[in-house]
Amino acid sequence: MRRLQPDLPLGSDPAAVRRRVEALERVMERAFAVPGLGRKVGLDAVVGLVPVAGDVVTAAIGLYLVWEARNLGMSKWQLARMTANVGIDTAVGAIPVAGDLFDFVFRSNSRNLRMIRRHLDKHHPHTRIIEG
Rank of each mutant, 00 (worst) to 15 (best):
M1L: 12
M1H: 13
M1Y: 09
R2Q: 12
R2P: 10
L4P: 02
Q5H: 15
D7A: 12
L8E: 06
P9L: 11
P9F: 08
L10Q: 13
L10S: 07
G11A: 13
G11P: 05
S12D: 13
D13Y: 04
D13M: 11
D13S: 09
P14S: 13
P14T: 08
A15M: 08
A16F: 05
V17M: 10
V17H: 03
V17I: 15
R18F: 06
R18G: 02
R19Q: 14
R19Y: 00
R19G: 02
R20A: 05
A23E: 13
L24T: 06
E25I: 00
R26D: 08
E29H: 03
A31Q: 15
A33N: 07
A33W: 01
V34D: 11
P35I: 00
P35R: 09
R39V: 08
R39Q: 15
K40Q: 12
K40Y: 09
K40L: 11
V41W: 12
L43V: 09
V47R: 06
V52E: 12
V52R: 13
A53M: 12
G54F: 01
T58P: 00
A59P: 02
A59V: 07
A60P: 07
A60W: 14
A60M: 12
G62E: 01
L63T: 04
L63H: 11
Y64L: 05
L65H: 00
V66H: 01
W67M: 06
W67F: 05
W67Q: 10
A69R: 03
A69F: 01
N71Q: 15
N71E: 11
L72D: 03
G73H: 04
G73C: 04
M74S: 01
M74G: 00
S75E: 05
Q78T: 13
Q78L: 04
Q78E: 06
Q78Y: 02
A80C: 05
A80T: 11
A80V: 07
R81K: 14
T83Q: 03
N85H: 14
N85W: 06
N85D: 14
V86A: 02
V86Q: 01
V86C: 01
G87P: 05
T90H: 06
V92T: 08
V92P: 04
G93C: 09
G93L: 05
G93I: 03
I95F: 14
P96D: 11
V97K: 10
G99P: 11
L101I: 13
L101M: 14
L101W: 12
L101F: 13
F102Q: 09
F102W: 14
F104M: 14
F104D: 04
F104L: 15
F106A: 02
F106S: 04
F106T: 02
R107Q: 04
R107W: 00
S108C: 01
S108L: 01
S108Y: 10
S110A: 13
R111P: 00
L113E: 03
R114N: 10
M115R: 14
I116W: 01
R117S: 06
R117L: 12
D121A: 08
H123G: 00
H123V: 06
H124Q: 06
P125V: 14
T127M: 08
T127L: 10
T127K: 07
R128V: 11
R128S: 10
I129S: 05
I129C: 03
I130Q: 15
